[in-house]
């Protein structure tokens, strides 16, 4: 009973947040609604027993991707009014793509319902978990059978980080520019700092 209530709550909120994502005028609001929908999708995943995917949704999508979106939306000066200007012109194309996606969904669900595809058990229950949660199962595989690949993937991330630093980080040419050097200021004599000149008429001062 509680499960059913939770399911309908998450599902309704998910669809509502998804609709608001595409309906809201302000792109920042869109991204925020997207985050709400990610949270609700994560709730749905917990309900079907896929808690690892739920955590991924929160950590990866909410934590990284959505924040990145927010960054892009807020940092870049995109003229959204101009982007929307072609809406009516592209409307038929958008509808066509939406229809194609809808047809694919119907075909896919139809094939699954007819038993052609074997993605899982038809009653929706997953394969038995050998008495462990699927996080434990994934961890057991990742740190034993696939240890080598896991470490190598870590190296890839390290290379990506080093690469980003190499390509963007610049050391300042003068180490302490902008710092006040009092000794240097005190050592300065008026005769070094000032020059008397007598420029001719019509000529500028030569420094």
């Amino acid at each position: 009973m509680i499960q059913a209530i939770a399911f309908y709550m998450f599902a309704v909120l998910l669809i509502a947040a998804g609709t608001l994502t595409i309906m809201s005028r302000n792109p920042v609001h869109s991204v925020l609604w997207l985050i709400v929908s990610f949270f609700n999708a994560a709730g749905l995943m917990v309900l079907v027993g896929a808690e690892f995917i739920a955590m991924l949704l929160v950590i990866v999508y909410v934590g990284a991707v959505a924040v990145l979106f927010l960054f892009v939306v807020m940092m870049l000066n995109i003229d959204f009014a101009e982007l929307r200007a072609g809406f009516m012109k592209n409307f038929p194309l958008g509808i066509a793509i939406a229809l194609v996606l809808l047809a694919e969904l119907i075909l896919g669900i139809g094939a699954y319902g007819a038993g052609v595809l074997e993605l899982g058990t038809p009653d929706g229950s997953a394969a038995p978990l050998l008495g462990r949660s699927n996080i434990e199962n994934i961890g057991a595989l990742l740190y034993s059978d696939y240890l080598f690949l896991f470490e190598a993937a870590g190296l890839i991330l390290l290379v990506a980080m080093v690469g980003a630093i190499v390509l963007t980080h610049r050391e300042r040419a003068t180490a302490h520019r902008g710092h006040q050097d009092i000794g240097k200021q005190n050592r300065r004599r008026p005769e070094d700092a000032t020059v008397n000149t007598r420029p001719e008429v019509g000529k500028g001062v030569q420094l």
């Binding site: 690949l149 190598a152 190296l155 890839i156 290379v159 990506a160 080093v162 690469g163 190499v166 390509l167």
Partner: peptide, 23 residues
């Protein structure tokens, strides 16, 4: 296939950075 792909990406990613090394 997984080892192949991870090895390939490790070497490719390093190569991309090397190619644009003189900024």
């Amino acid at each position: 296939l997984m080892t192949l792909y991870i090895g390939l990406e490790l070497s490719s990613l390093s190569s991309y950075v090397l190619a644009s090394f003189t900024r």
